[in-house]
Amino acid sequence: MTSSAQANVSSPVRAEKPQRKQMSDMTIRNLFIAPTLLLLIAMNVFPLFYSLYLSFTNYSAIARKAPVWVGIENYVNILTDPQMWQYFNTTGKYTLLTVSLQVVLGFALAMLVKEKFAGSGIVTTLILIPMMLSPVVVGLFWKYMYNPSWGYLNWLMGFTNPSVAPDWLASSWARKSVPGLALFAVVFVDVWMWTPFVMLLVLSGLKAIPDYLYEAAAIDRASSWFQFWRITVPQVAPLLMIAILFRTIEALKSFDLVMGMTGGGPGDQTEVIAVNLYRKAFLGQWQTGEASALAYIVLIIIIAISNLYVRYLNRLREG
């Protein structure tokens, strides 16, 4: 790298203005980085430590009392509450279902769009539209789609009589309760919205596979099944893992979509952790301390899962 001192020595033939005192590279570097780091520390790091502290207190944001240290009581309360385990369970189911469906569908879709055809660029971009929407708006709009009497979904599926049709978001079918239907309905929308994202990542992986691998396999008369498992899948794996990682993190903290569609209902069938956290922290209860503890538990889960993925990813890259 040329230091600016050297630049000064070489006579400034093309300098338009009279030479000002120049900043050294180090000054510039520090000036350039400082605002970003300061902002991130103020908006992310400080809150993070603050909420760690709050998670060990019984603080309530609307009470006019100073926080009192209660040790690990909040954590114990959460981890011994069977209802919380049920919410964790719901979140886990939601994550597992959405991510696996998105991976299968996204992969299939990417395999289909891999080879160009007339108009494939436009079609691919059109497929991406759902993920550009605001999740809460998507949730609200699908609430309309799912409506048992005037919603389009039942109509498109051929249910004309509302009394025998499924009422998706109320978890009932023909007036009988079918637990899990609402969760499935939310999962369906999440899959609709985010499959394009997985497709986009897998597609870029597919396009990066050199053609000669397939050509060599074709010359050796390898079956397309063999080609798929021995060439396509291993080559795409790193990008697929990134897609899975991002989707898993997003699914674990999913809030907007569920809030827009069901608000956790009916009962607490779709009460995922993020929704419950919002309820604990802001609605009615205002248990800031306990909510902070729950937030930390979620954070630890997310960090643990990300770490697992990243390790596996690195192994994939090396191996």
Binding site: M43, S51, L252, K253, S292, A295, I302
Partner: peptide, 26 residues
């Protein structure tokens, strides 16, 4: 490490930072 730190701030669930931010903002 710095770059990873910068990226990781985006992976935080909104709800984790909202509570302290809410108090801070107030």
């Amino acid at each position: 490490d710095l770059l990873f730190f910068i990226l990781s701030t985006r992976m935080l669930p909104a709800v984790v930072v909202t509570i302290p931010l809410f108090l801070m903002y107030r």
